[in-house]
Simulated assay, not measured.
Amino acid sequence: MSTALHEIDERTNLTASNKFELLLFRLGEAPGTDHRELFGINVFKVREILVMPTITALTNVHSSVMGVANIRGQIITVINLPKVVGCVPKKDTPILLVTEYARSTQAFAVEEVSEIIRLEWDQVIPAEGRGAGLVTSIVRLDRNADSALVQVLDVEQILRDVLPNATGDLVQERSVVKANILAGASILVADDSPLARGMIEKGLAQQGASFIMTKSGREAWERIQAISDAAVAEGKTIKDKIALVLTDLEMPEMDGFTLTRKLKSDHRFKSIPVMIHSSLTGEANESLVKSSGADAYVVKFSAEDFTEAIRKAIENNRG
């Protein structure tokens, strides 16, 4: 079995049990403390980990951009992650995390890489209401009262702040072909990133689509069941209420893979099209997404791709 196929197989086994792998790292002392907190990023986003290469400084860039590095012939922007979150490293930033996000590659300088751990998504809780901003969720490393906590960074928000021109938008300046959604039906959205939800809202509003926003796969699953029950009470079906489910993959409590499988294995919902909208890219990740059972997949954040994917998913289902 090739390396790529083996990687897909391993990740499929993980997602089939609502599990994922998290890379843990440290960025230095938190502001006003002497604690070196743990941070994390989904291994899906990490292409490689390197000893810091030579950095070429650039002029007139964001203060958190260290410059660019030539990594295997590719010129990659290097972001000082401790500076982004306000930590002070004691060991400088000798490690580089090269990541793939929304068809782009960037690198994050960190103080120290700890380990890769395997977790269940129900060990992850939303960070909103808990001082969120650059953090989407908080991970409990175990289920004990004294469990250590890991902050999972919102890569989408960080890149939007530091490299605004490198991230797309879901609002188009030119005219948009609106999605042909049945009157009274909505698109159910699941995404844990406030930034992503805001962009999705604008993109769907431009298409004239009604939508329902949720912050995790679990919330979306509970919401669609409640909507289904209400529809039955009205003498209608879930398709009269929900035209499409649009889901992210990385979410606390229940990920998008699990949500997709639950929807497609339930006779009430299996006819509802499911579209995955994710920043995960790369051959292994895209093959994994296709194997999840979703009807469509679109990479964040491309307005044209987003609009066309929604239109096709809805029309194909109605046809």
Results as ranks from 00 to 15, higher is better:
Glu48Gly: 11
Ser64Ile: 10
Gly67Asp: 02
Val68Leu: 03
Ile75Gln: 08
Val98His: 04
Glu120Met: 08
Val51Ala: 14
Val124Gly: 06
Met66Pro: 05
Ala132Met: 14
Gly67His: 02
Val84Gln: 09
Ile95Gln: 07
Glu120Thr: 13
Ile117Lys: 05
Ala102Met: 03
Gly86Arg: 11
Leu50Gly: 04
Arg118Tyr: 00
Val124Lys: 05
Thr99Gln: 10
Thr105Asp: 05
Tyr101Ile: 07
Val113Asn: 03
Pro82Leu: 10
Thr59Ser: 15
Arg47Ile: 15
Glu37Asp: 11
Val88Met: 14
Ser104Thr: 14
Thr77Cys: 11
Cys87Phe: 11
Ile79Ala: 02
Lys91Asp: 13
Ile71Met: 09
Arg47Phe: 10
Ala102His: 03
Met66Phe: 06
Gln106Ser: 07
Val113Gly: 06
Ile71Cys: 05
Val61Leu: 07
Leu97Pro: 01
Gly67Val: 05
Arg103Leu: 14
Pro94Val: 13
Asp92Ile: 12
Asp92Arg: 12
Arg103Val: 01
Ile41Tyr: 00
Tyr101Gly: 01
Met66His: 09
Gly131Ile: 08
Tyr101Lys: 07
Ser64His: 15
Glu100Ser: 10
Gly40Asp: 06
Val113Pro: 01
Ser64Tyr: 10
Val124Gln: 04
Val135Tyr: 00
Ile79Leu: 04
Pro82Glu: 09
Lys83Pro: 06
Ala132Lys: 14
Glu111Cys: 08
Leu38Gly: 01
Ile71Lys: 07
Val135Ala: 00
Pro53Ala: 04
Trp121His: 13
Glu128Arg: 12
Val98Met: 03
Val88Thr: 15
Ile55Arg: 02
Glu37Phe: 04
Lys90Leu: 15
Asp122Val: 04
Ala127Asn: 12
Pro94Gln: 10
Ile71His: 03
Met66Lys: 06
Arg118Trp: 00
Ser114Phe: 08
Ala132Trp: 09
Ile55Gln: 04
Ile125Trp: 01
Asn42Asp: 15
Val98Pro: 02
Leu58Ile: 08
Val65Tyr: 10
Val68Ala: 03
Leu50Cys: 11
Leu58His: 03
Glu115Ile: 02
Thr56Phe: 04
Glu111Val: 05
Ser104Ala: 12
Thr59Val: 15
